Simulated assay, not measured.
Amino acid sequence: MPWFVKIEKGIVDKSTFDQFVPAHQAYVKRLIAEGREAKTGYWGEFGGGMLLFKAANLEEAKAIVVQDPLIQNGCVDYQLHEWCIVVE
């Protein structure tokens, strides 16, 4: 399966964002349990973060991303890209 990356930028205040972090973490754990090898984290130097995961194709990746509680609750703007690995 190809890799996809959701690059996001926070658009709400920290207290609003933090309300949805536990649900986001549960969402990522579910992706891991599904075998999508998901990884998530945030940028150390400025607001925003990234979610890396596997999906069958771009359409499936889009369907997965819109289930993220951070997106469903309007906490982030994001871009979704297929990540083509050249060296492993």
Rank of each mutant, 00 (worst) to 15 (best):
V5N: 03
V5E: 14
S15K: 15
L70N: 02
G35D: 03
T16W: 05
K54L: 02
D13M: 06
C75R: 05
F53P: 08
K54A: 02
D13A: 15
C75K: 02
E59C: 03
H24M: 11
W83F: 11
R30T: 13
A33C: 02
F20C: 04
K39T: 13
Q19K: 14
I7C: 07
I71G: 01
G48M: 06
N73V: 09
A33R: 11
Q72C: 02
Y42L: 04
V21P: 00
P2D: 13
V65M: 03
M1I: 08
V76C: 03
P69T: 07
V65S: 10
G74N: 12
R36V: 12
A23H: 07
G47P: 15
Q19P: 01
E60F: 04
N57M: 03
W43G: 02
Y78R: 05
Y42S: 08
V12E: 08
G35K: 00
K62Q: 13
V66S: 06
P2N: 03
A38H: 13
T16P: 06
F53E: 06
Q19G: 03
E37F: 05
E8H: 08
E34V: 01
Q72F: 00
G35T: 06
I7Y: 04
V21D: 00
V66Q: 10
W43T: 07
Q25T: 14
L58W: 06
G41N: 11
E59G: 03
A38D: 12
L58V: 11
R30D: 13
E82T: 06
N57T: 02
V5L: 12
A26Q: 14
D68A: 08
A26H: 07
K9T: 15
L58P: 02
A63C: 00
D77W: 07
G10D: 07
E59D: 14
E82L: 00
Q72L: 15
K54N: 09
D77R: 14
R36M: 09
A26C: 00
V12W: 02
G35R: 03
M50Y: 15
E8G: 14
L58R: 15
Q79R: 09
G44S: 12
W43H: 07
D77F: 09
G49R: 01
N57P: 10
A33Q: 12
V12H: 05
G44C: 14
D77L: 09
A63I: 01
A55G: 15
P22F: 09
K62I: 13
C84R: 14
Q19R: 15
E34T: 03
V66A: 00
N73F: 08
I64R: 01
F17S: 08
V28M: 10
D18C: 08
Y42A: 10
V21Y: 10
V12Y: 07
A56N: 10
Q79G: 14
D13I: 12
A33H: 08
H24N: 13
L52Q: 00
L70Q: 04
A63M: 04
M1Q: 12
E82S: 01
A23F: 00
E45H: 03
K9W: 11
G49Y: 06
I64Q: 02
I71S: 02
T40H: 00
V21K: 02
A61G: 12
I85Y: 00
V76L: 04
L70T: 02
V12C: 04
M1L: 13
I71V: 15
L80I: 07
H24F: 11
D68P: 06
T40Y: 00
E45W: 11
V28E: 00
L70G: 05
A38K: 10
A63S: 10
D18S: 07
A38W: 04
L52A: 05
P69H: 11
